[in-house]
């Protein structure tokens, strides 16, 4: 299940027009593929992907978003 969720997150992140996502975007994308995926599991999967250096966190200052490492505008300007 966890692997499936991670895969769904990555697929969404790779194909989306946007390069930065709110957690909610990830949640919706995962649940579109895996309807019974729970919020807390999606968060765990996203955390794992961050730890595996596939996703990164991105901040606008007050708000934190997720991004695919190497795609779009990243931390090093």
């Amino acid at each position: 299940m966890m692997e499936e969720i991670k895969q769904a997150i990555l697929e969404f992140a790779e194909t989306s027009k946007k390069s930065k996502f709110y957690f909610k975007d990830l949640e919706k994308a995962v649940q579109a593929k895996i309807p019974d995926a729970k919020m807390r599991d999606i968060k765990k999967a996203a955390t794992e992907l961050v730890n595996e250096e596939k996703l990164i966190y991105f901040s606008t200052g007050s708000t934190t978003m997720y991004g695919l490492k190497g795609r779009g505008i990243t931390e090093d300007q």
């Binding site: 955390t47 966190y57 991105f58 901040s59 606008t60």
Partner: peptide, 19 residues
């Protein structure tokens, strides 16, 4: 100005990027 950096590895907060 503000950059996207948010934290140390694995953290999504605690650091605020500043340039």
């Amino acid at each position: 100005k503000h950059g996207g950096i948010v934290g140390v590895f694995g953290y999504g907060g605690g650091v605020i990027g500043r340039y």
